[in-house]
Every structure is written in structure tokens, then in C-alpha cells.
Design a protein around this nucleic acid. Structure first.
Length: 503
RNA sequence: GGCGCCGUCGCCAAGUGGUAAGGCAAGGGUCUGCAAAACCCUCAUCGUCGGUUCGACUCCGAUCGGUGCCUCCA
């Protein structure tokens, strides 16, 4: 039985969907005005894992995530760059989606954009005004917080205390400092849309209410986002939406993920302590970053640092190499059975995920499974291997690490160049020149590596270890690691040279 | 000031009443030309002080330290 922690009730609750067999999810996306950082990636990955697990459990998942593609930041930034606001948003939406692709985040049902739902937004504002929840003043239409008696229920705040802490008003016409803008009247030169109140644009918050209700209807199952959105964003969404539809609840389960922390502080643009995903992907494969993100409970802050990422990189290698070996096993006749064990592991997997998506426990489980198969794998029956493999694949699918077990041939142009330089370099060595000369640079990268391995194997058998080690070391320098066994040498391409070697 | 969260081995990190998962690092081994990999072994009583309880890392109170939201933010 799946249980989730609901911010609204501050309790872990049994997860029951609005409709049998279907889950409707709205996850707050980004305001596309700059490069997305790892914090944005974390959110996306977290809701993606939930999505995948719910599918594993047999649900049909209708999952959307928005782009708030019009707001002050976008307007300001596009003015700075002298480009259209849409051009700016398009650019960063595209980068964001590319980044999510690197992280294996599944394609969603929709990616609604605020500017493409202006009619729905206007309609919502109109009704709220008609129902007496909103009023018009000189610079826009405002939501009157005091009209919504449950205001504060999500963030568990007392409305009076909130008022005391409120900042000095920009517009003194507001009836209450807590009232927030549903619609902002256009200032000179700002992008705007026609409305019953003249030209203007949506305020923040309203777009999420309008779009989630539009696509998912009221009382949909999961609304997620970073925990910095609890107040005021999600609080305001509840106020607007429940007032608008007259139906409670707007959302059945409010889920919030923790922030990414750097040096004990929240990662943010203003503190300039952020790592963009693009930066990280230069050094680490998206799957490694993803493994890192799922190694920690989703609702807690994640203290990000490169050393931890390096750790995940090693863990990833362990999983990857272990799984490669596992796939090469052939079952033994009358071999050991691990069917029961696989069953228990699957239970552990499901128990962990049912417990508010505890992916950290699942990662720990992977270590247990691999430790077992690394030792006993060769003794297992074919049936057992199949069973364990099914489980592993299910886990990989849910965690979203799909490339495990494949020798990732990250062979791009620059790698090939590096390899050629290496081969040329080896030709300079007297001991090696002759053997190396048989390698043609026109060959496939993998063939070149294999030839080098063969040459080295010969050297080893002749006990010419210095030359053999030279080849191994040179290859290591470009990310190809050779490993000897009694009978042969295998190679692997490492994903990154890591922080250590970066110096 | 209001509402929260966190403080577990050198580091990262599970854990929500029954005597501390996992990973990295470290040390010692098996293997090995060396290296790597794999495997084995070693490695914490949970910020502090009280309380509740047969029993607390887990509940309550206090205290110290860190941090989030209350203004844009995943």
C-alpha cells in the first residue's frame, strides 16, 4: 500500500486516487528565463520517479508540468537582451527539456504554457471577481484573501501573523497586504493580452490553477513542487481554485521536494551558488547525476557537492560493471535457486517505494543484490537469473537508469581524436612501434582498442611489463580502463575522469 | 517576530518506540607481474540536558548550532 506525505495534513496518508487506476499529477515547472540548475533537475527527477513507480503499480499516469513563460523576470531579462519575451522563454524551455532528457525524465502528457492559456486565466479571474473573491484597483485585479476563510491551511500559517510580517505595500489601494494579483494591468511597453479589464497579463499563481484545472479537473491527485513554493504559491493556488470551483479539495495530495543546498545554503541564482545542469553534464553522464539525485529522500534538502557526485559516479560504475557481468552469466543446470530471495528483494523494493517513494532504500537494495550476484551469480540456475534480472530491470526502470549494463560507447569525435593521438604517441616508443604500426586509424574506435589490448596481451605473455603498462596507462588517461583476468583483458569506458583528475 | 525543517561513523546518508541500512574514504586480507576489478574482515549509540516509557536515534520539554519560508525561486 502506497503512502505519501501530504503537506496539507502533515501526515503520511494512504494514497487513493480520484479515479480508479488513474493518477493525475501536476508538477510545478520552471520560469524559463535562465539556465536551469540541478535543483530544477532534482524536482523533475523526483516527480518522474513517482510517475514511473505509479506506472509500475499499474496506474495510468496523466502528468503535466507547466512553464510560467510570462512574468517580471522574463520581461526584465528579455529587455536586457533586447529580445522578445517569447524568444527568451522558448530558448530556455528548450534547454530545460534537453536537460531533462539527459536525466531520462519521461516525456509528459503536456507542458502547458501560461501564455497559451490566457482565455482560461481570464475566465477564472472573471468568475472570482463575480463571486466576490476579487476586486479591481488601479494596477490590476486582486484576490481578497480575507474572503477565503481557510487561507493558510496548506502552509499552516495564521493570517494575522502573516499580516504582521507583510512588507510595505506597493499599492496602497489594496484592501489587505496579503491580497495578491490575479491580473496585472500592462505598463508601457510590456507584453500584454486583452481582457475585460484592459490590456494586461496574468499574475503569478493563477496560471497554475487555471492550467491544472483545465487539464486535470478539480480534486486531482498529486500537486507537486519544491517546498519553497508552499507559501505563497501553492497556498494561493488553493485559495483561487477552491473559491473558483466551489469544490474542496483542489488537490488530494500536496507533495513537496526539498531544496538543493550548497555550502549549507539553498542553491539559488541570487546567491550565485548554483550548478547548471549543462555544467554538470560536461563532467558526468546524466544517469550518474540521476543516481545521485535518487540516492537521497526526496523531501529532504540535498546538500550538493562534487565529492558526493563523484561518489555516485563510483557507485554507478559498480552497478554498471556488476550488471554487465551478470548479463554474461549462463544458468547452471540444477544450479542454486534464488527465486525466494528475488521475491524478498522485490518486497523490499516495493516496501521502500510504498513508503513515500524512499528511493534511498532502493539504492541500498541494489548494493545487496549486486553483492550477492557478484559472489553467487555463476552458481545460479537459469530460472533464478531470469527472475533476478526481471527485478533488476524493474528497479532500473523505476529509478530511471536505463543504460546500466550497456557498455556505453560514448565515442564522439573528440574521443576518437584523443585515441588517435595516443596511437601516434605509442608509435614513438621503440618497443612498440612495430606492433602499433599494424593499427589503421581508419578502423573503428572499438577495434583500435581491442588491437591495443591484444598487443598488450602479447607483451604481457613475454613479460615485457613496462611496455604493457605503458599502453594501459595511456589508455587510462583518455578514460579507457583495462582490467586483466587470468584469461583475458576487458576494457571499460569511464564516464568521467572525475574531480580528482580535473586538476 | 510568525510558521517549519535539520543536527546519526572522517564524508554522503537510511531510520518515525524494541538495543543503529547502505555508500565513499580508511586499515587488514584473498587474488595478482603490477594495477584494476571482485570478494572477505575491521570501523558510530545517534548535538547537549532533562522527562515519559519495561524500553527512545525515534515521543515531550529545554538548550546550543545550522537552515528554509514569510519578497522572485524547483
Amino acid at each position: 500500500m502506497l503512502k505519501v506525505y501530504n503537506t496539507l495534513t502533515r501526515k503520511q496518508e494512504e494514497f487513493k486516487t480520484r479515479e480508479k487506476g488513474k493518477v493525475y499529477i501536476y508538477a510545478c515547472g520552471v520560469t524559463p528565463y535562465d539556465f536551469p540548475h540541478i535543483g530544477h533537475g532534482r524536482s523533475a527527477v523526483i516527480y518522474d520517479v513517482m510517475h514511473r513507480y505509479l506506472e509500475y503499480k499499474g496506474y495510468e499516469v496523466i502528468h503535466i508540468s507547466n512553464f510560467t513563460d510570462i512574468d517580471d523576470k522574463i520581461i526584465n531579462r528579455s529587455n536586457e537582451l533586447h529580445i522578445n519575451y517569447k524568444e527568451l522563454a522558448d530558448k530556455y524551455i528548450s534547454i530545460y527539456l534537453d536537460n531533462l532528457d539527459m536525466l531520462n525524465v519521461k516525456q509528459l502528457y503536456r507542458y502547458p504554457r501560461a501564455t497559451e492559456h490566457i482565455p482560461q486565466i481570464i475566465e477564472m479571474v472573471r468568475v472570482l471577481k463575480e463571486k466576490g473573491y476579487a476586486y479591481e484597483i488601479s494596477d490590476g485585479i486582486y484576490y481578497e484573501v480575507s474572503k477565503f476563510k481557510e487561507y493558510g491551511k496548506l502552509s499552516h500559517r495564521d493570517i494575522t501573523a502573516l499580516r504582521e510580517g507583510a512588507r510595505v505595500e506597493v499599492n496602497p489601494e489594496k484592501r489587505d497586504p496579503l491580497d495578491f494579483a490575479l491580473w496585472k494591468k500592462a505598463k508601457e511597453g510590456e507584453p500584454s493580452w486583452d481582457s475585460p479589464w484592459g490590456k494586461g497579463r496574468p499574475g503569478w499563481h493563477i496560471e497554475c490553477s487555471a492550467m491544472s484545472l483545465h487539464y486535470l479537473g478539480s480534486s486531482f491527485d498529486i500537486h507537486g513542487g519544491g517546498d519553497d513554493l508552499i507559501f505563497p504559491h501553492h497556498e494561493n493556488e488553493i485559495a483561487q481554485s477552491e473559491a473558483y470551483t466551489g469544490k474542496v479539495p483542489f488537490v488530494r495530495y500536496w507533495l513537496h521536494n526539498g531544496m538543493v543546498i550548497v555550502n549549507r545554503e539553498k542553491m539559488s541564482k541570487s546567491l550565485n551558488n548554483f550548478f547548471t545542469m549543462n555544467e554538470l553534464f560536461k563532467r558526468y553522464d546524466g544517469e550518474i547525476v540521476r543516481l545521485y539525485l535518487v540516492s537521497i529522500s526526496y523531501h529532504k534538502p540535498l546538500s550538493f557537492d562534487l565529492e558526493s557526485l563523484e561518489q555516485s559516479s563510483k557507485n554507478y560504475e559498480y552497478f554498471n560493471q556488476s550488471y554487465i557481468r551478470f548479463k554474461q552469466l549462463s544458468g547452471q543446470e540444477n544450479g542454486l535457486s534464488s527465486i525466494e530471495l528475488a521475491k524478498k528483494w522485490r518486497e523490499r523494493f516495493e516496501d521502500a517505494m510504498d513508503n513515500d517513494f524512499n528511493t534511498a532504500l532502493v539504492v541500498a537494495l541494489l548494493f545487496d543484490i549486486f553483492k550477492f550476484v557478484n559472489v553467487k551469480g555463476s552458481q545460479l540456475s537459469g530460472e533464478s537469473l531470469t527472475e533476478v534480472d526481471k527485478l533488476l530491470q524493474d528497479i532500473f526502470l523505476v529509478l530511471g537508469i536505463k543504460k546500466l549494463g550497456t557498455i556505453e560507447e560514448k565515442i564522439n569525435v573528440s574521443f576518437k581524436e584523443e585515441l588517435m593521438v595516443l596511437v601516434e604517441g605509442l608509435k614513438e616508443e621503440k618497443e612498440l612501434a612495430e606492433a602499433i604500426s599494424s593499427i589503421s586509424l581508419k578502423e573503428e574506435v572499438s577495434d583500435i582498442i581491442k588491437k591495443l589490448i591484444d598487443i598488450r596481451w602479447e607483451l604481457k605473455s613475454e613479460k615485457r611489463f613496462k611496455s604493457a603498462d605503458l599502453i594501459r596507462n595511456r589508455l587510462k588517461d583518455i578514460g579507457v580502463v583495462l582490467e586483466d583476468t587470468n584469461t583475458r583483458t576487458t576494457y571499460k569506458l569511464i564516464y568521467t575522469r572525475g574531480v580528482e583528475n580535473e586538476k
